[in-house]
Simulated scan of single mutants.
Amino acid sequence: MDAQTGTCRCGAVTLTVTQPPFMTTACHCTGCRKMSSSAFSLTAMVPQDALEVEGETVRGGIGAPPLDHRFCPRCLTWLFTRIEGQEFVNIRPTMFDVPEWSRPYMETMTAEKLPWAQTPAEHAFPGFPDPDAYPALIAGFAARG
């Protein structure tokens, strides 16, 4: 994969991803809905070392550990989230010109989803998947191409 570059709405922060996502998700939790101002948030998961950030970011959202939500200080676009203890970062895929990164493979926190909210996700979980489920989910996502 060639490196992909995306920006916040105002262009003050540039994100470059050097590896493709290993999973895409839609999260229906109340917190993500409020931060995205939508029915769910979209995420593409990439290894931490695959993300390069150019420009200043600020912490936002509730952002209590273990979550580190990063935003552009100028336009306040939600850029990405790091989770303490994880080796991946959740990027907001709509900032990139790669439409398939925005198609969720799984959806999480469906116990909190709005009754009319629908996604094309192939897997759904009322909370977060059990950690033991991730290897099969990642392999399924990779096999999908």
Score class of each variant (00 low, 15 high):
Thr5Tyr: 01
Thr5Ala: 14
Gly6Met: 07
Thr7Glu: 08
Arg9Leu: 09
Cys10Asp: 13
Val13Phe: 12
Leu15Lys: 09
Thr16Phe: 04
Val17Cys: 03
Thr18Gly: 06
Gln19Ser: 14
Phe22Val: 03
Ala26Trp: 03
Cys27Gly: 09
Cys29Ala: 06
Met35Glu: 15
Met35Lys: 09
Ser37Ile: 00
Ser38Gln: 06
Ser38Arg: 09
Phe40Leu: 09
Ser41Ile: 04
Leu42His: 09
Thr43Lys: 03
Thr43His: 15
Pro47Leu: 11
Asp49Ala: 08
Asp49Gln: 13
Val53Ala: 10
Gly61Ala: 08
Ile62Phe: 10
Ala64Gln: 07
Pro65Trp: 08
Leu67Asn: 13
Leu67Val: 11
His69Phe: 13
His69Thr: 01
Pro73Phe: 12
Arg74Lys: 15
Arg74Ser: 13
Leu76Gln: 14
Phe80Val: 01
Phe80Trp: 03
Glu84Thr: 15
Glu84Phe: 00
Glu84Trp: 01
Gln86Ile: 00
Asn90Arg: 13
Arg92Ser: 10
Thr94Val: 09
Thr94Arg: 13
Asp97Met: 02
Val98Met: 12
Val98Trp: 04
Glu100Thr: 12
Trp101Met: 02
Trp101His: 11
Trp101Pro: 01
Met106Thr: 02
Met106Tyr: 08
Met106His: 10
Met109Trp: 15
Glu112Trp: 07
Lys113Ile: 02
Trp116Gly: 02
Trp116Asp: 01
Gln118Tyr: 01
Gln118Thr: 12
Glu122Ala: 14
Glu122Gln: 15
Ala124Pro: 00
Phe125His: 12
Pro126Leu: 07
Pro126Trp: 05
Pro129Tyr: 12
Asp130Lys: 15
Ala133Leu: 10
Tyr134Asp: 06
Tyr134Ser: 04
Pro135Ser: 13
Leu137Ala: 09
Ala139Cys: 03
Ala139Met: 06
Gly140Phe: 05
Ala143Asp: 15
Arg144Met: 03
Arg144Tyr: 04
